[in-house]
Each structure stands twice: as C-alpha cells, then as structure tokens.
Simulated scan of single mutants.
Amino acid sequence: MRIVRYREASFSRLGALTEEGAVYQLEASDLMELVDEARAKGLSPSEHVTGLIAGKVPIAFSLEELELLTPVDAPEVWAAGVTYLRSKEARNYEATGGKLDATTFYDKVYEAERPELFLKSTLARTVGPGQRVCLRSDSNWQVPEAELGLVLDREGIIIGYTAGNDMSCRDIEGENPLYLPQAKVWSRSCSIGPAVRLAETVADPYALQIICRIYRNGEKLVDEQASTGMLKRRLEELVTFLKRDNELYDGTVLLTGTCLVPPNQFTLDSGDRIEIEIEGIGILANTAVYKHELTQPFYQTN
C-alpha cells in the first residue's frame, strides 16, 4: 500500500494508491495523522487504510492525471553519506582530482562505526514530484543522487519508504570537505516522492531496485541501476545514530545514501529531466533549472 498527496482545487488531499493503480481519497489531512489513527485502533497503517477503502469507489483520476505533492511534509530531511562502495569511490575521485586508487578520509568513514549524517533540507527547501529542482549558480559539476528515503516518526520508527533526490555539487564537496553544506543545501536542492510505501508492506527493504535516468532534449544520457542490497549499513543503524542526542519530528525523512553516480564527465544542465525510480514506490521526476529561471516564488504552501 502506498500513500500519496495531491492537489484538488486549492486543497491538498491524502490518497491510498493500490497495487492496481487506483487512488482512494482518505479523510486524514496528512500521513502522520493517518498513522496516529491506526495506532489508536491497534492496527498497522496498512490494515487501517485497507479498512478505510473497503467498499469505497476510487477517485475518477489516475495517478498520472493528479498534481502530486510531496507525500509527507517533512520538517527536516537528513542524509547519510558514503554508505555504498560506489559513493566512496566517487567521493575519493572528487577529493583527489581524479586519482582512482587514492585513499582519503572517505575510506575512513566508510569503515568507521559512526556513519556520516548531515541535515540535507527543510520543509521550505524540499519539492515534490513534477516540480523543479534548482542548480547552484557557482558549481560546474552537479549531479542528482538517487536514494531510498526512510519516513520516520518522532521515536525513529520507520513508517514507510520513499524516493529521494539529493542534489549535489561534486566540485564544491571535492574542493574541501568543510564545504559540504554548500555542496548539499540550497533552494530546491532536494525532492521526495512520489509516494510513501508503508513499511509493513515491504518484504525486504534490502532487495529494492533503484534506477536513475537523466534526459536532455529528449535524449537519455544516463540510465543506471543498482540495488539497496549493496548498502553497507543497516537502516536501523542509520536511524539509531540520527536520533542519538537529537530530536526527531514526525515525518522526518532520512535519505540513506546513493549507489548510483553518473559518469565523472557528466554534469546537469538547465532543462535536464531527472527520473528516480524505486521498485514498489514509483518514479520521482523533476526538471533541473537555475533559480533565476523560476517564474514564481519558491515556496508554495501545500
């Protein structure tokens, strides 16, 4: 069972998306309210939703016809780095100016007990499916990073899974590790969606296929795929470190790192279409532009 949010007139609606592709409108205003309702009844969120839509008629529109919003209003989006071997190799390449066999501090964090965790985005910087992500004006080497996202409650319990795009500037991060916040955080530098797959409906989160495609002027330039089975760290391990001496908020998203890195010679350009597909969740599609190209204010209340 997947949960989506969509715009209807000037309102946001919560919907249940079945395996057959039908969308059922739900009365809850957001995902966490739905979770609280389920817990009050002693049910899992999936059991609760199944009961709510039993005997009901789906809405008249398909998922493709809806204006989708972020599936959850994440007050904070955190991210983990160097959790896949491919990510470690890419970070080493950046930091050493292209020396493939070099060893850096990224090797150290890859093997360390403590993972790399950083604050990636806030509610006002995060966009949903179909919306535009922004490129930095002072970077010449920018890429999307396709990642599995964990949707958490305030206790760190994994409510569900979503797809995330952790936009990154490889040249800025490679120049100096202290520049990581600038290489990762700016307006519209993060997107999540298109849905939240409820955790109890995922048999094995380490067996999900992730695909990243990038199109320019209709031509597919990047088409790479990998599996969450390549993840070095356990999901619960990442959550444990995130909540250590920290305060989580309902709906917090933790991106778990990337195993897909475009070729080293590739950089995003304005107008590029990015598609991140995760098995059982859906396709998160966004177009990259520069901030000055936007014709409307960045933050729109959902």
Rank of each mutant, 00 (worst) to 15 (best):
R2Y: 05
I3Q: 10
V4I: 15
V4G: 04
R7W: 02
E8W: 15
S12M: 06
S12Y: 12
R13C: 13
A16W: 09
L17F: 10
L17W: 12
T18F: 06
Y24W: 07
E27C: 03
A28H: 11
E33K: 06
E37R: 13
A40R: 15
G51Q: 08
A54G: 06
P58C: 07
P58Q: 08
A60D: 13
F61T: 10
T70K: 15
D73A: 11
G81V: 00
V82P: 12
K88H: 06
N92G: 09
N92S: 11
L100P: 08
T103I: 14
T104R: 08
A112W: 05
A112G: 08
L117M: 06
T126G: 07
T126L: 05
P129D: 07
S137D: 15
R154H: 11
M167W: 11
C169S: 15
R170L: 11
D171L: 06
I172A: 03
E173D: 14
P177A: 00
P177G: 02
Y179W: 12
L180S: 10
Q182V: 02
A183S: 14
V196G: 06
A199T: 09
V202F: 05
V202R: 01
Y206V: 00
L208G: 09
R213M: 00
I214C: 07
Y215N: 05
E224I: 13
T228V: 04
M230W: 11
L231N: 05
E237D: 14
T240C: 10
R244G: 01
Y249V: 04
L254I: 00
C259A: 13
P263D: 09
S270R: 00
I278S: 08
I278M: 03
G280L: 02
L284E: 07
L284P: 10
Y290C: 00
K291D: 14
Y299V: 13
